[in-house]
Each structure stands twice: as C-alpha cells, then as structure tokens.
Amino acid sequence: MEKIFVKPLKRHGSLWIYQNEILSDITHINAGSLVKVFEEKTNKIIGTGYINPQSVIAVRLLSFGDEQINKNFLRERIQKSHKYREDFLGLKESYRLIFSESDFLPGLIVDKYGKCLVIQILTAGMERLKDLIVEILDKLLVPEVIILRNDAQPRVKEGLKVEKMVIKGCVDNLIMTKEDDLKFYFDPLHGQKTGFFLDQRENRLYLKSLISSGEGLDLFCYVGAWSIHLAKRGANITGIDSSEKAIEIAKQNAMLNNVQDKCRFIKADVFDYLRWEAKKGKKYDFIVVDPPAFVKSRQEKKDAIEGYVNLNRMALKLLRKNGILATSSCSQHISETDFLEIIKKTFKASKKTGILLYKGTQSKDHPILLTMPETSYLKCLMLRVF
C-alpha cells in the first residue's frame, strides 16, 4: 500500500479527498489501488482508502485508521450494515443493504429484494474488490439471484466499462417485492436504477395516512408504487410515465393488488399531459410529483430550479382548493433549503398559499452520514393547498 500525503483537511469526517488536496505525486499509481493517507505537516494518519489519479475525487477513504483492506475487513463492514437494517430497523424483505459512503463502503450500492440482490459498483476501487464483495454477500444472504447493475454513468468517469449482467441464478420474469401490505413487480435488470425506488418507502406510507378518497394524479409514476398505495386506501388515481415498459408493469401491479378498478396508467410526457388537463379545466384532489433528478452537476442547478418551478406550478394549477401536493426532488445538488424555496417560489408565482403537512427524506435504510452532506439527496414535501 502506497503512502500519500495531503494538506490539512478542513472537512472533518468526509471520506473524500480531492486532487487539489494531495501533495504527493500520484500519477504513477493505478486506478483503484489501495493507499494510506497522511497529513504532511504532522505525519498523522488520515485513513486508508483507494485512489483514482484521473478522478476529481482522487481518494475515497474506507477507514479513518491504518487498516488492512481485506476479506475480513469487508465482511465486518457488510455484516454491520446487514445488522443495522435487519436488527435495528426491523427490515426483512426488501431494503438497501449498502448505501455507499453512509456505510463506509464508498462506490458500492447493494439492494436486497427478497432472494434477489442487485449490486451496483461505481468506482475503480470497488471494482477491484468486486469478487470479494460478491463472495461475502453470497455466503451471508444466500440469494437465489445476483445481478450486477454496473450501467451508471459515474463508472465512465472512473474509466470503467458500463455493463449489466446476471451472475447467479436467472431472471426470466419480473421480480416481486413487498412494501407494507402490498406487492410489486419490477424489472431489476432493465428498470431504472436498481429496479425499484426503496428510498421513498416512508414517504409513500405517510401520504397513504393522509388520503383515503378523492381523485388524483401520480406524475412520473414508474411501476405505480405511489398510485397503488393510495388506490388501496380508496382513492382513484391516474399514473403518468413516458416509459411504456413501466406503464405495463404498473398495470400488472394494479391487478396484483386488486385495485385495477381504482387505477389507470397512461404513457405520456408529463408536461404535455398537464397542459392537456389544464386546457380541459380538470381539477384533482391530490397530485404526486416524483420526477427523476433534474440536475446532475452544480452547473445545471439554475436550469433545474426553473424546471422544478414549472413542473410544480403546472401541478398546482390542477389542484382543487384544499388539495394535497406531494412533491419530491432526488437531485443531490438541490438542498432541502433550496427545495423549500423552490416550492415557496412556485406558490407565489401561482398566487396560492398553503400549509406544510410533512417534510420527509430518504428512508432509513439510505442513512445520511452527518459529516457528508452529499449522502443526503431526497427531499419530499407534502402540502395542503388553499
């Protein structure tokens, strides 16, 4: 393991070390190699991690101490994450088992869906540890299916191949997961991200406690999770998504949960659909707005803010008096404060007011590491509109 030296670090508790903080020559070190990091002035150990000289985030720490990164180290980390989800949170069926930096395994995402594991490796350092990680997970959880969803764009920046494959078992059909008293089909190999959005679990359950009747919209509905929760409570809801495959699965999920008479799903562009409904003068009792990330970098933030304002303004136009708006942002570069200001701006532009009923974040199996604000990404606001 090579030793590298850095400037005194001001971001206490962060696992990231940027190129401009490194004093040593690292150009000769292979991407993904393990390194020990020391502060130059004091020769104090900062931690042990892996390096990618081509990345802006040049080092990602796995430990704040001087440790050997081997099979035992990885097994202990993974067992600790597993124990937190199953013993402390009480999750058994489906959950995010590893959430990258928040579980001190930066660059690694693992989702458990019953007997199916979906693994996503984002960095060169984790790619080098892949075989050990898969071996440990296979022995610990004994899954029937293991899928590698290594098709995320951060891999390109790390110099890694973009790919997806089944490395254990087979996936001939859709996988099923459970949430509360409902069941959902999803596609872990070809669907969005790792197939199902576990991070909105607690927000979906809260909205279900508010709504038991009326007519609503579920925008960017994907496989219909928000819709089916609300339909099961007695509401009538229309889900809109531009993906034909997602709409097909959402319809199957409605039948699976016996709410097909309360749900309909339409393949359409959300913005176009909202314009059509506004022209007809249509009004709804509640609207769920859960779009994909509008911003992938700080440079795109201004345009993203405008996009969020326009989308929520169009949704507000269709809400009846005393209607409920449940709106989210999963853009990491939009902070909680930013998003609240966006919604305030939207209300002002729409000449409406309302009260904040609920302020939520990602579910607890996606923990937020306090010393790394980058691990907090999901914002969910629920408002009663006057």
Rank of each mutant, 00 (worst) to 15 (best):
K345C: 11
I334Y: 00
H82Q: 11
S94C: 06
Y113A: 08
R275W: 12
K279G: 10
K36H: 15
R313E: 12
A349L: 13
L132A: 13
K139T: 12
L189Q: 05
R275E: 13
L182T: 09
G354V: 12
F271G: 04
K41H: 11
I211T: 09
F271D: 05
P291W: 00
L174H: 02
T238Q: 11
L198T: 02
R85N: 05
F339A: 01
A304R: 08
R201M: 08
A268M: 11
L105C: 10
V142Q: 14
N312K: 03
L217M: 08
L108S: 00
K164E: 07
E202M: 10
C221Q: 00
T375P: 02
R128F: 12
V110R: 02
D103T: 06
N258Q: 15
S350L: 03
M372F: 10
E306P: 04
H82A: 13
N20D: 15
I98W: 09
I175G: 00
D199M: 10
I211F: 10
L15S: 14
I167E: 12
M126R: 02
E144S: 07
L61T: 11
Q54A: 12
E300L: 13
V118Q: 02
L122P: 04
V166D: 03
I305V: 02
T371E: 15
W276N: 13
Y284Q: 03
W226E: 00
K352Y: 00
